[in-house]
Nucleic acid binder design. Structure first.
Lengths: 196, 196
DNA sequence: CCTACCGATCGGTAGG
DNA sequence: CCTACCGATCGGTAGG
């Protein structure tokens, strides 16, 4: 179906070059049709973007949820670490992740409201996943008795920092930075008397 | 001097709207001249951008250095915290900070090399500032005996995370997140036996 | 799904 | 520093 292909190719182009640097001619060429034919499927460039955005939001949340379920019967450390790792590798390697990073960090101005909404939706989805893990960790005295808000906030800052850094460093440096950051984070949240 | 005004107005426009969304007509209007008159001062739009980039790099590094000197006779905690706070408030409030964030995160493709260079230069500058503080902290047994690389990496991830988040949250939420992240970071790096 | 075309706007130039 | 203008390209439309 051509409509599907338009959305897929647009996602790739928006992810790699941004909305403003992607022209309808670029999209048409990637799809293998002429520019005016795009208007048989979408009424404007804006409409294509908003469809892509909606698709990505849905897929991001499905992905996060599926990853959370995977580690349900492991230790607190393993569960948090798994969420952390899978989120990062997703953001680093997938086209959806690149698109999401690009539009959330510096959104095309005309869409900034919708994009903010999507960002907060994905974040709430993430909170629903990690909050029970953190609460269980405090209850079992694996984590320090800090407020859940403090712990989730610090977790977000951790992944947001790496989410950004993934753009600047080669794989080796990024991997090193990612391990170091996790190590300090874990030392900061775990109950200090705890043996590992 | 008109040249100075062109650079200042361009910085503001690039910071707020990005390179691709700023036209020479926008710049000329902000300066109060007509578009072709810009060519008496710069030979192209690219040249204006590169001059702005160079200016910002210089000012960023001067700013960081001046902040580091300020807290030389304080405790390790105070020194690290001061660097952390002043860097963040600078990034959040200044036009230079916004420009720096925009171009480093998703650089205009034709300048990605020069921008990466500038980013790494500023980062090296930051490393020169925090490394001696961290080394002294380990030596004095205020910080855990981890490798300096691990500690600086985690510090960067912390500030990069907040650097990104500053875009999404209102002042109050950001302030809360920033305090929570610092708290966990400090718990992660400080020598656990230490009384505060 | 195409060819042909639109008005607007882009960075940049000629010439004074 | 300006007016007048350039070729190229943008998103989008007419008409089949």
């Amino acid at each position: 179906m051509t409509q599907r292909k338009i959305l897929d190719e647009s996602l790739t182009l928006f992810a790699n070059h941004g909305y403003e640097n992607t022209t309808l001619a670029n999209i048409a060429e990637a799809v293998g049709i002429k520019k005016p034919s795009l208007y048989n499927h979408f009424k404007s460039k804006d409409a294509i973007f908003l469809h892509v955005l909606e698709d990505v939001a849905k897929r991001e949340m499905d992905y996060l949820s599926s990853q959370a379920d995977l580690s349900a019967d492991h230790t607190i450390y393993e569960r948090l670490h798994h969420i952390y790792r899978s989120y990062l590798s997703h953001m680093a390697d997938s086209t959806e992740g690149m698109f999401f990073k690009r539009v959330t960090f510096f959104p095309p101005e005309e869409f900034s409201e919708q994009i903010k909404e999507v960002f907060l939706m994905v974040e709430n989805n993430m909170t629903d996943i990690i909050r029970p893990v953190i609460e269980k960790g405090i209850e079992e005295k694996v984590l320090r008795p800090l407020s859940t808000d403090t712990l989730t906030s610090a977790f977000y800052t951790l992944i947001d920092g790496l989410f950004l850094e993934e753009n600047f460093y080669d794989k080796a440096v990024f991997e090193q930075r990612q391990q170091a950051s996790w190590e300090i984070f874990w030392l900061g949240i775990k109950e200090p008397e705890l043996e590992e």
